[in-house]
């Protein structure tokens, strides 16, 4: 019995393999052989474009070194969100289970109350959830790395928009599901979408002026007050849920959007985003 004579892929084939020109079945043979032959791999490296080889090693290093991301980040990556955007979102509290569970709890409670007594709880809380999410995902005292964020070259306003999309993506579908769970009020309860967008935009637009606590606080209080007054003065659907109310809300949202874009540069420094109530009150007065 004689042992098999060691063989190597010819230089010509290796050159063609490196260039991507080697046809099957020689390609399959070369690939199988390369996996187990250090000599041929080193010869292949000589024929490969050094830049492509370095890129390949860098990609391999990056894959080996990359920490396994959390569940939320994995879901984002599976949804084909670019990895750097997924990481920016993963740092936001809105993508944590505690926030998502809170949203589900509030909406479930609102649906329960709505199916047994009045839809007012759902109508009042659902539009505020995206605003609450935005407050939690951005701002001093709430974003732990806020100071690093605001001094980074990436524009803070851009980060704000990225996180706003995550907030809306996590709250709007659950709100829609909650609306569908209330068949007798489906039309009215779906009317919270416009107020949700308008309140979120208004809260953000006022943030540079009033700070990250007072701005959403005032917007929320104003919203709840308008619902309460409407409920006391008439027995029909609350004003924001009427046709005129929806138009008014849409107009307010548009104006707030214009104001938000105009104030975008104020998000780039920290001073006007101080969480101090006293400072905010002074700004207001």
């Amino acid at each position: 019995m004689t042992s098999a004579k060691p063989w190597h892929v010819s230089e010509e084939d290796l050159r063609a393999y490196a260039a991507g020109d080697l046809p099957p079945p020689r390609l399959w043979s070369a690939e199988t052989h390369l996996a187990g032959c250090p000599h041929c791999r080193s010869v292949l490296a000589e024929h490969a474009d050094p830049r492509e080889l370095a890129d390949g090693w860098a990609r391999l290093d990056a894959e080996l070194d990359a920490p396994s991301p959390g569940l939320a980040e994995r879901l984002l990556l599976r949804a084909r969100v670019p990895d750097h955007i997924a990481r920016l979102l993963a740092a936001a509290p809105v993508l944590r289970w505690s926030w998502f569970a809170s949203v589900l709890f509030v909406l479930a409670l609102a649906v329960l109350v709505g199916r047994t007594t009045t839809p007012l709880l759902l109508l009042s809380t659902a539009p505020l959830l995206p605003l609450a999410g935005m407050v939690l995902s951005f701002g001093p005292g709430l974003d732990p790395a806020y100071e690093l964020t605001v001094t980074a070259p990436l524009h803070t306003f851009r980060l704000l928009l990225v996180r706003a999309s995550a907030v809306l993506a996590s709250t709007l579908p659950t709100g829609v599901l909650a609306s569908l769970a209330m068949p007798s009020f489906a039309t009215v309860t779906a009317g919270w979408l416009l107020p949700a967008l308008a309140l979120t935009t208004l809260g953000l637009a006022l943030m540079p002026r009033l700070g990250p606590v007072l701005a959403p606080g005032l917007v929320s209080a104003g919203w709840l007050l308008s619902l309460l007054l409407g409920w006391l003065l008439s027995h029909g659907p609350p004003f924001p849920y009427t046709a005129v109310g929806q138009l008014t809300t849409a107009g307010t949202g548009l104006l707030a959007g214009v104001a938000l874009v105009a104030a975008r540069h104020h998000f780039e420094t920290a001073r006007h985003l101080t969480p101090s109530f006293r400072f905010a009150a002074r700004r207001l007065l």
């Binding site: 860098a58 990056a62 806020y146 990436l154």
Partner: peptide
């Protein structure tokens, strides 16, 4: 510095690198 809870040392520095506009994954990780 305000570390995000649950991030590893690598993930935190990676996050800061993204804030510094590094979008190319392999170069950023390097």
């Amino acid at each position: 510095p305000g570390f995000h809870p649950g991030f590893t040392a690598f993930e935190f520095v990676d996050y800061v690198a993204i804030l510094r506009e590094h979008t190319h994954r392999a170069a950023r990780h390097q």
